[in-house]
Amino acid sequence: MSIEVKNLGFAFGDNQVLKGLDFTIPDKTLVNVLGHNGAGKTTLFKCLLGLYRNYTGTILVNGKDMRSLSVRQRAKEIAYIPQSHSSVFDYDVIDVVLMSAASDVGYIGQPKAEHKERAYAALEKVGIENLAKRPYTQISGGEQQLTLIARAIAQNAKTIIMDEPTSALDYGNTVRVLSCVRELSSEGMSIIQSTHQPDHAFLYSDSVLVIHEGELYAYGDPKDVITRELVGTIYGVDVEVTSLYGDKVRVCVPVKELGKMDKKGTRWFHSGQLKPHDS
């Protein structure tokens, strides 16, 4: 089992953020975590990563209690990919990936030849080895995200957590990053990522875990979990779940919006806010 969570609870003071979470995530699984902003997704991730330690219940990652491990041991079990961010200083892409060696070398150590090979191989794996010597701050958001994924690969942990990896990316980069993530999971990694797009879960997940008001609301196959009722409950939006390509994939369509459209297919003309030939 990659992750086993039993009766997990977490509170910031009086504010109970997570309540009685129970779930297990098998090895080689790609899990999408859904939930509205503030539902507790990030808190759950930080508990799993061992960044928050004062939770109740137990968390086992690859069979090990994260609270009993040192910082370096934790980094060997589980890697973290934050939302793409810009670094304060202009590091080369390869030097950002090389930071993955931190869990291997001691306080005064430096990355060795094997770490450098591993870092470069990881860049090749995500397909951006040509950017190795470019400054990290000057590549696109999608390339930055791929750099961080390469860093997580080079970290050699079996489990990876990604907090909304595509929230800041355009459509093309989103697809590129997610397909890279799916390929990694098919090669044996467990990946847990949060997303705000239920549609992504149909394409890029083995199972979906839904957090609502700090509780585990649903967990299972995306086709079973993501329904009109669920989206209505957690996001407060009325959608119709439609199946495409012989049910190979499904999409959520906000049905109320359909009614607002007139025959021209544009609701703005209809409501009079903007006329076609206004100048």
């Binding site: 930080k46 934790r74 980094a75 934050p82 670094s87 200083f89 030097d95 930071m99 993955s100």
Partner: peptide, 14 residues
């Protein structure tokens, strides 16, 4: 170098 990435990220890197 790794500290410049921020505390939480640095910690998850070990």
């Amino acid at each position: 170098n790794i500290l410049t990435m921020g505390d939480e990220e640095a910690e998850t890197l070990g």
